[in-house]
């Protein structure tokens, strides 16, 4: 419990900054939307987007969304919110574990009467708490900032469903970050390796959109698991991908516990 409190305190500042970032991001996006819809150019925006080559649409993350509606607009920007959430999660996972070795505090912590597994569990709980806070702030700011522009359109259910998808991906990337820091022989590199993996999968998801021919690769990139288009327009969260996420998460946690218990600490 003391370890959980310590971790929450240690990450307090960074979590607050992230939360401010979330509100700013959602707020700025929606105020852009306000500009668009006020000038009545929402529909013309749709036409403009439709005229663009498909690859450009993919890069801008729009595609099939109806940008004249608040929900469509939110769906189009969601990929960036998702990117934020997953970067936070993967860095948190890698950092919360590797920092003890990076800052040479592992020697301080692990000569206390706790096992490595106990230490991992408390760190995991602290990270989970932060993911929940992150997700709730995202949910709250989305609902509060999208609704004023919705013109009576019901958006809350879509937002909530997207947030569940986001939380699943947060868990998944937290697991990946933890596993890399847990197993890696070079804990100092854990954060950069895990962010590299994240960016690679993100770029892969865009490449899938652009190409159109490598759809099968969507299993390789978590960014495709709960794609806003599918979640909003074709039946919510896909059970197969929920299963796959759970599988990867459990796999990375096993890897974390086994790897971290087996290896020598860098002290």
């Amino acid at each position: 419990m003391n370890l959980w409190i310590r971790e929450m305190k240690a990450h307090r500042k960074s979590l607050i900054l992230w939360c401010i970032g979330i509100v700013a991001m959602v707020g700025a996006s929606m105020s852009k939307y306000a500009g668009l819809s006020m000038s009545g150019s929402g529909a013309s925006m749709n036409e403009l987007m439709a005229d663009m080559p498909k690859s450009l649409q993919a890069v801008m993350g729009v595609g099939t969304f109806d940008l004249s509606k608040a929900s469509g607009y939110y769906g189009a920007i969601f990929i960036y919110l998702l990117l934020m959430a997953t970067i936070h999660a993967v860095m948190l996972g890698a950092n919360i574990l590797s920092k003890e070795e990076r800052d040479k505090t592992a020697e301080f912590l692990l000569v206390r009467p706790i096992s490595r597994s106990q230490m991992l569990t408390f760190k995991l709980l602290a990270a989970l708490t932060q993911l929940v806070i992150f997700n709730l702030v995202m949910l709250g700011s989305s609902i509060l900032l999208v609704n004023p522009y919705s013109h009576g359109e019901s958006v809350n259910q879509d937002i909530m469903l997207l947030m569940v998808g986001m939380f699943l991906l947060q868990l998944l990337f937290l697991g990946i970050g933890l596993a890399i820091a847990g197993v890696s022989r070079y804990p100092k590199r854990a954060v950069s390796i895990s962010t590299a993996i994240l960016l690679f999968t993100f770029i892969l998801s865009i490449a899938i959109d652009i190409s159109g021919n490598i759809d099968w690769m969507k299993y390789l990139t978590p960014f495709k698991y709960f794609d806003a288009k599918h979640v909003m327009y074709s039946g919510g969260l896909d059970g197969r991908f929920i299963g796959l996420t759970a599988l990867i998460l459990v796999g990375s946690l096993i890897l974390t516990y086994v790897g971290y218990n087996k290896r020598d600490l860098h002290v």
């Binding site: 040479k104 706790i114 002290v267």
Partner: peptide, 21 residues
């Protein structure tokens, strides 16, 4: 029995690094 015996061990490392903040 690491966790159990460490209840009764006090350790001073050669290089002292602690949580800075």
């Amino acid at each position: 029995y690491g966790p159990e015996i460490k209840k009764e061990i006090g350790y001073l490392p050669s290089e002292v690094f602690y949580y800075d903040n």
